[in-house]
């Protein structure tokens, strides 16, 4: 099968303009999304993953955020400067599913109104046709009684059902790219399981390229074909899913994987310290303070990719220059 690059992000840098200061939030992020594939993005709060998503959609306000780098959709540069064009792209070519379903809906409109409104902004159809499309979409997501759901208000539906409605709204135009920012974080595990299952089915059905953001390693392992780990605004490690889970290289990725209690009673091997706050961005490796194998030169490190073999890239001085590293010292 020929893999087709749907979205190509290169050197994306986002900074927040705050009191005459530029605080860089996303730094030199590059990845590409392929048709029918899922790129998983792991990271903790404040690492810049949500801002990455928003910037891909052109949703950041121009006067508060500075976005640099190139984002190409099907080979064409995204028209960030043209508000009207980017608005048309949103929803039709690039769609997004947000973390908190209940706050993403206007409480005064029914699900059906939300649906038909979105459909009619993108497609020239009558209200009735839009309603039919909506019902079809909801059926695809295994919602029973879609007509009833269409007449209900957001607060009458459970979180899982709302998230399904949101996914249905996101997918009705068969977008090339679906950006899912923590789509299951606020849901129960059993519901999460079903939503993920449905996302996987839709991906196979529509061949959508998907960017799945999550802090849950289980979700990423289940869904992603390729995984990028973000820390302090950088993608510190990126590799195919199996590779990164079996052979994590960056000390942060390793720490993250070990800190999950995977049905053991053994003492957890934790990462000390806390994720760095946005305001305190300094030079060098952002993971320096928490890293167990930090060296003096880490503070001078320019965060360039240091090792990239077999599609596995990492930004860490451990993998610069001399090949063999004392891996055990760090684990």
């Amino acid at each position: 099968m020929i893999k087709e690059k749907v979205m190509d992000v290169e050197g994306l840098c986002v900074s927040l303009l705050h009191r005459q200061r530029e605080i860089s939030v996303v730094r030199d992020v590059s990845f590409c999304l392929e048709e029918g594939k899922v790129l998983g993005l792991i990271g903790e709060s404040g690492c810049g993953k949500s801002i990455t998503c928003l910037s891909l959609l052109g949703l950041l306000e121009k006067d508060r955020w500075k976005v640099e780098g190139s984002v190409r959709l099907k080979g064409k540069e995204l028209p960030y400067l043209n508000r009207e064009k980017i608005r048309r792209l949103r929803g039709s070519s690039v769609a997004m599913v947000m973390q908190n379903p209940i706050s993403s809906f206007n409480p005064l409109l029914t699900v059906g109104q939300h649906f038909t409104e979105t459909i009619r902004t993108h497609k020239e159809v009558t209200r009735r046709e839009a309603g039919q499309i909506a019902v079809e979409m909801l059926l695809k997501l295994n919602l029973s009684e879609p007509e009833k759901v269409m007449g209900q208000y957001p607060f009458q539906l459970s979180g899982g059902m709302l998230q399904r409605v949101m996914i249905a709204i996101a997918l009705f135009m068969c977008p090339h790219v679906l950006i899912a920012d923590e789509p299951t974080t606020s849901l129960d595990v059993t519901v999460q399981y079903q939503i993920l299952k449905e996302l996987a089915e839709l991906r196979d059905h529509y061949r959508t390229a998907m960017l799945l953001v999550s802090h849950d390693l289980g979700v990423i392992a289940q869904m992603a074909d390729e995984v990028a780990v973000m820390y302090g605004g950088y993608v510190v490690e990126q590799a195919p899913s199996r590779e990164i889970f079996c052979n994590p290289m960056h000390p942060y990725t390793r720490g993250l994987m070990k800190s999950r209690p995977a049905f053991t009673k053994d003492r957890l091997n934790v990462l000390e310290g806390y994720p760095p706050s946005l305001m305190k961005r300094s030079r060098g490796c952002p993971f320096y303070e928490r890293c167990r194998c930090a060296r003096k030169d880490c503070l001078e490190f320019d965060m360039k990719e240091t090792g990239a073999t077999g599609g596995h890239s990492v930004r860490c001085l451990l993998y610069a220059g001399e090949e063999e590293v004392k891996m055990d010292a760090c684990s």
């Binding site: 029973s144 899982g160 999460q192 993920l196 889970f245």
Partner: peptide, 25 residues
């Protein structure tokens, strides 16, 4: 049982093939 089967292990070697378990309805 359902709760346990919904837990996703952080190990791509143990990926679940998500069989249809449509009992939410």
């Amino acid at each position: 049982e359902k709760l346990l089967s919904s837990v996703l292990p952080a190990d791509p070697g143990k990926i679940k093939n998500m069989e249809v378990k449509n009992d939410e309805n």
